[in-house]
């Protein structure tokens, strides 16, 4: 089994698609596989891996397995207990994704307050393809006008001495988040593992947190839909209903099912990146990490000195955005 994973990973991480023969071999092995837990893992795992190679819209069609635990705010460790799954043995030169998955497994075995999720983005490797933005939007079924991780592109310098910079901007999950104390309804707070979350059922939609964030990392769900104003001619073409299937799909943010209907939450709420809590609670990496074609985004436990992110954060060329405002972000950049 572990060979199989290594095969898949190696082929994917070379950045090339597998040949038909290889795919059929994998398929055959998968069919033979009977272990339910491993099959379950592979389902989730393959979703992340193939998502980087194919359109992110398809990623969501691959039936994500996400927990539907109740979020009531009082129970911070609301996920079901983590069930570790097998990973291939560590090999020299293996892809960072595997190492980060081991990091996550190790972290999830610790109590929640002993881990601190951190992200590192290597700007030298980012090509500005927007795969992370699109896959994030697909994973969380983001409506128009809501974005968790835009990729900012800037030209710097003046002709002829010009350069091009790309800067993915997730939520910084600050250790001193300015968005938290301003909330009049206590609808947003920092979990012990460092993730800043929003309780959609508590949020009154005042948008104070949007103004308070020094990174513009929060957006408001205005209740818009992609099919707004679309032509509707059922017998001529697919029509609004089919095209709008995306709009009615539930998202599973914060391990709860959210359907955007009427004026129900998350419509009328502040929304933001949550480091893909439903995925990491199951031992998977955030969507933006697995879909990054340049392997420019890293994720793991900053409290674990053995983790890949801890190594990267220690680099002399690692930095954080707007250090001067004293927010102490959990997202680091490497330049």
């Amino acid at each position: 089994m572990s060979e199989l994973y290594t095969d898949i990973l190696k082929n994917n991480f070379k950045g090339v698609a597998m040949s038909k023969e290889e795919l059929s071999r994998v398929d055959e092995k998968l069919t033979l596989e009977t272990d339910e837990s491993r099959r379950d893992f592979l389902d989730k795992f393959s979703k992340g891996i193939f998502g980087g190679l194919i359109a992110s819209g398809v990623v969501n069609a691959l039936a994500p397995v996400q927990a539907k635990a109740k979020m009531d705010g009082s129970n911070l460790n609301f996920s079901e207990p983590f069930k570790p799954f097998d990973l291939p043995p560590e090999t020299p030169g293996e892809d960072g994704i595997l190492r980060m998955m081991r990091d996550i497994q190790r972290a999830l075995k610790k109590p929640i307050e002993q881990r601190h999720w951190k992200m590192v983005i290597d700007l030298r490797k980012c090509v500005g393809c927007d795969a992370c933005s699109v896959s994030c939007a697909a994973e969380n079924k983001l409506p128009p006008g809501v974005i968790y991780r835009p990729v900012i592109q800037q030209e710097i310098g003046s002709y002829p001495n010009v350069g091009h910079v790309t800067l993915p901007r997730p939520c910084m999950h600050c250790d001193e988040p300015p968005c938290v104390p301003v909330c009049p309804a206590e609808a947003t707070w920092k979990r012990p593992d460092g993730i800043v979350i929003v309780d959609y059922d508590q949020c009154i939609g005042c948008r104070y947190c949007l103004n308070a964030c020094p990174y513009d990392a929060r957006t408001f769900d205005f209740g818009m839909e992609y099919i707004d104003g679309a032509a509707d001619a059922p017998k001529v073409f697919l029509g609004k209903e089919k095209a709008g299937k995306y709009e009615t799909e539930a998202s599973y943010e914060y391990e709860k099912e959210w359907k955007r209907e009427g004026e129900e939450s998350p419509i009328g709420n502040a929304r933001k990146c949550h480091f893909c809590i439903p995925r990491i609670e199951k031992g998977m990496l955030p969507e933006c990490v697995v879909t990054c074609i340049g392997r420019a985004t890293y994720f793991g436990d900053g409290n674990d000195p053995q983790s890949l992110v801890s190594e990267l954060i220690a680099l002399p060329n690692a930095f954080r955005l707007k250090e001067e405002v004293g927010t102490h972000p959990s997202v680091y950049y490497i330049k």
Partner: peptide, 15 residues
């Protein structure tokens, strides 16, 4: 803008 260029990163009338 809190970060220069953010309005062009993901284009929408609400952004």
């Amino acid at each position: 803008p809190e970060i220069k260029g953010i309005a062009d990163a993901w284009v929408h009338s609400k952004l």
